[in-house]
């Protein structure tokens, strides 16, 4: 009884913390405490968090190296913009359409390719990512190489915040469910888990589809914040960027993915002033972090309630 109450209190506390964080930022934006530049970076940060956390489900927890995440982002972005901009639907329809389209793309790509292993899977996903880009480049309805411009800005802070929290919650809960344990077992030992009666392929596809859906969500938010989408934005270099975040944070750590996404966004921003050397510094940081912390910032650890409880207790 006591335990239950405590859990409930913790939950309430967390909700309050999240709500306060939301309100502070919302207030700061409304009052103008956060200038445009920071506003843009907070948006990029949230989008990167969604991308990194969702790819982490595929690359980190399921252990399937995917190099085509930007492709799903593109599918989501384009599908939603067709809904909102071309067909005049409300934003929520755009979001759902984007997620759905990306999820379907994930399913169609996942079912055949997830039979492949390791680098062969990597190259197949990379290939699909590129195919999506080339196809978009050649469809005139969506603007060809010029992409779609003049998209209405609908990605507001509430949408952004809610999407980020939902992404993290869904993926964390998925991992902690029985599905999640099956997914992790696939990573740890595919043959053993198959022998235990786990249908490895379907769990891999499940993780892949969920990851793709959230990548699509990120694409939707991106499109409706930056006014323009073009196929080039979603090339393989973008996919690499996301992989970098996941690995930097720690494969199989959602906390790590979040931290790395924040870190990379701010690094990019902070280096803006050093136009000539920014990419050199960026690449050096990448190499150095990997050499000294090859398992990523968090390894496979998570910051959980327990961690906080320990820190809290430690201080006492």
């Amino acid at each position: 009884m006591h335990e239950k109450k405590k859990t409930w209190l913790t939950f309430l506390f967390e909700v309050i913390v999240l709500a306060v964080l939301f309100t502070i930022v919302q207030y700061a934006i409304t009052v103008g405490l956060i200038n445009q530049s920071y506003h843009i970076n907070i948006t990029s940060m949230c989008i990167n968090i969604i991308l990194a956390v969702s790819l982490n489900l595929i690359n980190g927890f399921t252990g399937q190296l995917s190099l085509g995440h930007a492709g799903f982002m593109a599918v989501g972005a384009y599908a939603s913009v067709i809904m909102t901009n071309n067909l005049g639907m409300p934003f929520i329809v755009g979001i759902l359409a984007g997620c759905l389209a990306a999820g379907i793309a994930g399913f169609l790509i996942g079912v055949p390719t997830l039979r492949l292993k390791g680098d062969y899977l990597a190259i197949a996903t990379l290939g699909f990512g590129e195919i999506i880009r080339v196809v978009l480049q050649n469809i005139d309805y969506v603007g060809g190489p010029a992409g779609m411009v003049g998209i209405t800005r609908l990605t507001s802070w509430p949408w952004l915040y809610a999407s980020t929290i939902v992404t993290i919650l869904v993926i964390v809960n998925l991992i902690n469910s029985s599905y999640g344990r099956a997914i992790i077992s696939v990573r740890e030992d595919e043959i053993a888990s198959e022998l235990m009666g786990i249908n490895t392929t379907s769990y891999k596809v499940l993780a892949f589809v969920v990851g793709a859906m959230f990548a699509g969500l990120a694409g939707v938010l991106y499109a409706h914040f930056f006014y323009i989408i073009k196929p080039e934005t979603f090339g393989f270099l973008k996919s690499f960027d996301i992989v970098v975040m996941v690995v930097l944070g720690g494969l199989g750590s959602t906390t790590g993915a979040v931290i790395a996404a924040i870190f990379i966004t701010f690094l990019t921003f902070a280096l803006q002033k050093y136009a000539a050397v920014r990419m050199i510094i960026y690449s050096l940081i990448l190499i150095i972090v990997m050499i000294y912390r090859p398992q990523g910032v968090m390894g496979s650890k998570e910051l959980t309630r327990k961690t906080f409880a320990r820190i809290w207790g430690g201080k006492k």
């Binding site: 992989v243 970098v244 050397v277 190499i287 990997m290 398992q295």
Partner: peptide, 19 residues
Amino acid sequence: STRIAALITAIGVSLFLEY
């Protein structure tokens, strides 16, 4: 370490050489 860590380093080296 894991192969993917090495892969990221390779991407880092690639960017470094280019820029």
